[in-house]
Amino acid sequence: MTSLKSHLGHGDAVMSTQKSHREKLRISDLHAFYGESHILHGIDLTVKQGELVTLLGRNGSGRSTTLRAIMNLVGRRTGSIVINGNETLGMPSHRIAHLGLGYCPEERGIFSSLNVEENLMLPPAVRSGGMSVEELYEMFPNLYERRFSQGTRLSGGEQQMLALARILRTGANILLLDEITEGLAPVIVQRLGEVLVTLKERGLTILLVEQNFRFAAPIADRHYVMEHGHIVEEVAAHELDARTEMLNTYLGV
């Protein structure tokens, strides 16, 4: 009896270390505030190594705030955010990136006082093994052609590619991408979809905020649905067909 129990206990410990190793991001009971406004009300989510997970939801449901809270860019946070096994709630923003995070903000954040190449070279490496500039120019040939243009002179699609390319250079292996397809032409959306598939094949872990469900559905492993600062549903890719109706009600499509 005792031996069985200790045996089980041992097995549990092994399982849990394996599990936490596979977990690149674990958020528990996360509350976030902008000044007095309480925006996130106890978020729980996990993203495993190599997964592509989306945050779906209506406008204002708190998806961008979740990503900003991970980067410590909101006013105040409580709860827990564990990245690669490190608790980051007390960490200053600039240390978080060095855990291997790459953040692509909703407004893209291309710097107008920098040219395209300077924008691309700007974020410091956070891990080794980032993509080389040549590789990135190959992936996004437009950026190469326009490398000496002012960053904000690029088209919306090119700016989005630049915002994505510059975090791929840093070696980040967890990407937080906020509405990268917003307002872009279908062919560019398609191109971005191909890029995400490539990144996933390379083993990157991606948390993707999306409005465009048709873009997200075929490439994602799991979806979280947010409403009013809560996570209200979690849907695995294979459950999508069965739960379309629920999603339609939440996303209002």
Partner: peptide, 13 residues
């Protein structure tokens, strides 16, 4: 100068 918050998020002190 343009966007200190984003620079911070990129890992710059």
């Amino acid at each position: 100068t343009e966007n200190p918050q984003l620079m911070q998020a990129f890992g710059i002190n």
